[in-house]
Amino acid sequence: MTAAGYLKRLSKRLTADLEELDAERISEQSQATGAQRACDCGQGEEVSMLGELRSVQTCSKAAKTGVVAEFFDGTDVVVLKWIGRNRIPGIEPGRKLTVRGRLGVKDGVKVVYNPYYELIGDD
């Protein structure tokens, strides 16, 4: 029985899409900490989520649009926007963090403006 379970997990890892495996890994880590799942959060709610940054855009001083990051918790994408900042140390693609703030929706995309965040070290 144990060998069959091992072979099943191994074949899943060998045949599954890498993005799907990554999403599953992030989602499991998030649930283990008790964080909320982004797919379950709605507009106007105070949220606390754990996930990874997929991409980060910084602005020039002239543009003054702030830092924009794509946050993924394994279930959904949330855009994080820090207004008035042109760079934030530690906010970079691939970084794991916990985010807290009020969730909004702009143009059908979930967004948190000026979120509180805590960088999570590599395990």
Rank of each mutant, 00 (worst) to 15 (best):
T33C: 09
G42S: 13
C59L: 04
L50Y: 13
V47Q: 03
T58L: 07
Q43T: 10
L53F: 05
R25I: 12
G51L: 06
D73Y: 01
G104V: 06
S48D: 11
L21A: 08
G42P: 06
M1N: 14
E20L: 11
A32T: 06
L7P: 04
A35F: 03
C41E: 00
I91V: 14
L80E: 08
V56M: 07
R100Q: 14
G104M: 06
D22Q: 11
L50W: 07
E45S: 12
W82L: 06
G94W: 00
N86W: 05
C41R: 03
I88T: 03
V68R: 09
Y116L: 15
R87K: 14
D76N: 11
Y117C: 11
E20Y: 05
E24D: 13
E52Y: 10
T98Y: 13
V111E: 15
A62R: 11
D17H: 03
T2H: 05
E19Y: 02
D107C: 02
Y117E: 04
T98I: 15
L21P: 02
T75I: 01
V99G: 08
A62P: 00
A16M: 06
G101H: 00
A35C: 09
G108R: 06
Y6E: 07
K106S: 13
E92W: 04
L18A: 14
Y117F: 14
I91R: 00
D22Y: 10
S11K: 09
L80Y: 04
S60W: 00
G51S: 08
N86A: 07
Q31D: 12
V105W: 07
V79W: 02
D123S: 15
L50P: 05
N114K: 07
T2K: 04
P89M: 12
C41A: 06
Q57K: 13
K106E: 14
G101I: 01
G5V: 05
L119K: 03
E70A: 10
P115Q: 04
K110C: 06
R102E: 13
R13M: 11
R95S: 09
V79E: 11
N114I: 09
V99Y: 02
E19C: 11
R95P: 09
G34F: 01
M1E: 14
R95N: 05
P89D: 15
I83E: 10
A35E: 06
Y116T: 15
T2V: 05
D107I: 00
S60R: 12
L97H: 01
V112H: 06
G66H: 03
G34I: 00
G34S: 05
R54Y: 07
G42H: 09
Y113M: 13
E28M: 03
G108E: 01
Q57H: 12
R100T: 13
L80S: 08
Y6P: 04
K110L: 03
V111M: 15
L103I: 01
L80H: 05
G74I: 03
L14R: 05
G5T: 04
V67F: 01
V68K: 11
S27Q: 14
V109M: 15
Q43M: 08
